[in-house]
Design a protein around this nucleic acid. Structure first.
Lengths: 340, 340
DNA sequence: CTGAAAGCGCTTACAG
DNA sequence: CTGAAAGCGCTTACAG
């Protein structure tokens, strides 16, 4: 079995209190005693039990994460990679909670509390979810990603979605496009809503009227982009350019376009959102709105840790900048196209 | 603050021992007492503290994971997705350990023990790593992925890498190819070695002599495939087909081929390994060796939990089958090609 | 069927 | 500078 603090105390011939003081670098221990204890610790290969310590200090050195999106989603991967990086030398470990969100008896707050979590980051969960409400009202430091929730101890971080899509539309307009469609995400989600505002804003700035048949909802997936684009292509007057709410959806859209024997950007220009690493690898290189996903992951943890360590730190609301990355999937409107 | 078992006991007018029995569904509690306790629990919204419970039972209901590969690697994502799925209703949560593998003072076993982990899965860490040795010798149930390590309480699971590459070579040979190169992974890793054996086996079965200039080491990444392919294209007699040790490397190879103005599979056939979901999405659809990565993730957890619950369960050594998925990146050898 | 007591491995006032 | 004691929130024999 593992050595406990009692074993060390016995070995060193001191009390457990003294051993505890040495472990925690208290100053009021004589050099002599300190070295005796250190020797005993080395001899017995003793390591303090984080769990037991947590029970008395109330700190678990654990950050929880609630993610309700598949890990295979490249956006999730990049976010987690940032989270991981920021956690690396922080002393905190990351716990993914097997949350039973569909179980009416399940409570996310209870789960966090019974695990003694020091803080938690939430991603991809609808803010209306019953379980989220409890969390926001609790005292557990929380950071939401892409959800505009705030609370006494809850902050959030979101990309500047609105401006991102605005820039995309502007870019297409500068290339001569007027028939610009938008493959949107899930209605109600803040991310979706602000991107939609950006789309309308962009159209307005270019004096292009808004057409409802040019806006289709979806779910950010490849299939969703594929289906949406198919529908757009069946319109009497199909768009010459389309902005998608995710890179994966954009890939789906490109697939649909090419399946019709059309080309990107020859016939139709396509813009994605996210700038996942595949965006630059595959042909045609995808013009897309860059989100600093990795940086967001890092920031989320940094802010969360600050909140944990300082009860008075006001929960931050951060907007991360977005930018347009121009590659090969967008091009000048072909002169043969009829401008409406 | 949160209600503790004492609060419940007081509220219900019973002892904490009795409350504990109710929580843990002991039979020897009268119906009357049981319902009194349940009411108190509901009233106070009491949830047992998993941490405190773990301290006495020795079980943390936590499975640790050590991954030393970026989450952005699609293979990692799929594995984790399987792990997550299997964990979903198991009662276990997953803890990613912020392991300081480069710190000589760091011990992975100590980390696991101080966290009271019930079991751990290791992926992407060299088996020679100092910290791994300790883990294998410990009593902590452990499952390794893609590493041929076993111990008293340690098992592993690996794809049938050898047969996979063998099938790939055979497929190319059937298409008329004789100049078949192999972009390998990291020398020394068991995954790499057994794939290499499969490659040689495949050549031998097709009576094709092994050429050292047709085998290049790499690191599974896109760039690694890109660079390796570039080198192959500079040979006096470049290959007409290439098997890659990962899909990402295969994508890199295709990139290099197309950058030279050549086409896939027109000029050169390419085969990947993994069958990540991008393999079927992008053009040309990638012929690849399928690994049941998601299933491996599920299996790893199932076996680990079995080991945890049954100390006598012998640590399993599992080989998952591989299969060849034929898409568009492989084709018949062009007749104009000179067969050596 | 119920509860007092000891203990899991720690930390923290507090007294000396 | 050192240590006895109480306590963090639980469970588990054990006695009644």
């Amino acid at each position: 079995m593992l050595a406990s603090i009692h074993d060390v105390a016995r070995e060193a011939g001191v009390s457990v209190a003294t051993v505890s003081k040495v472990i925690n670098h208290y100053p009021d221990v004589s050099e002599k005693t300190r070295s005796k204890v250190k020797q005993a610790i080395a001899l017995l290969r003793y390591r303090p039990n984080v769990i037991a310590r947590g029970l008395v200090t109330g700190r678990s050195w654990t950050v929880g994460v609630l993610i309700n999106i598949p890990f295979t989603n490249p956006y999730v991967s990049m976010l987690l990679e940032g989270v991981k990086t920021a956690l690396e030398n922080s002393g905190y470990d990351l716990m993914r909670l097997s949350a039973r969100l569909n179980d009416p008896d399940y409570s996310f707050v209870d789960h966090c509390q019974s695990r003694n979590l020091d803080g938690v980051v939430v991603f991809g969960v609808e803010k209306e979810h019953r379980s989220i409400q409890g969390l926001v009202q609790s005292e557990i430091p929380t950071m939401f990603v892409d959800t505009d929730v705030t609370g006494q101890r809850a902050g959030n971080i979101t990309t500047d979605n609105q401006n991102g899509v605005h820039m995309a539309v502007q870019h297409l307009h500068e290339l001569g496009h007027h028939r610009i469609a938008y493959l949107a995400g899930v209605p109600g989600q803040i991310v979706n809503e602000s991107r939609l505002v950006g789309y309308r804003e962009g159209l307005q700035a270019a004096s292009i009227p808004y057409r409802t048949d040019y806006v289709l909802n979806g779910d950010y997936s490849f299939e969703s982009g594929l289906l949406g684009m198919k529908k757009l292509l069946q319109l009497v007057q199909p768009p010459t350019a389309v902005v998608c709410t995710s890179d994966m959806a954009a890939f789906g859209a490109i697939h649909a376009i090419e399946a019709q024997g059309l080309s990107v950007p020859g016939d139709i220009s396509v813009i994605g959102f996210d700038n996942i690493f595949e965006a630059e690898l595959f042909k045609p290189g995808l013009t897309t709105i860059n989100q600093n996903i990795h940086a967001i992951g890092v920031k989320v943890i940094e802010e969360l840790i600050t909140m944990i360590k300082n009860p008075d730190y006001p929960p931050p609301v951060v907007t991360a900048s977005s930018s347009l990355v121009i590659r090969e999937s967008t091009g000048r409107l072909a002169s043969t196209e009829v401008v409406n």
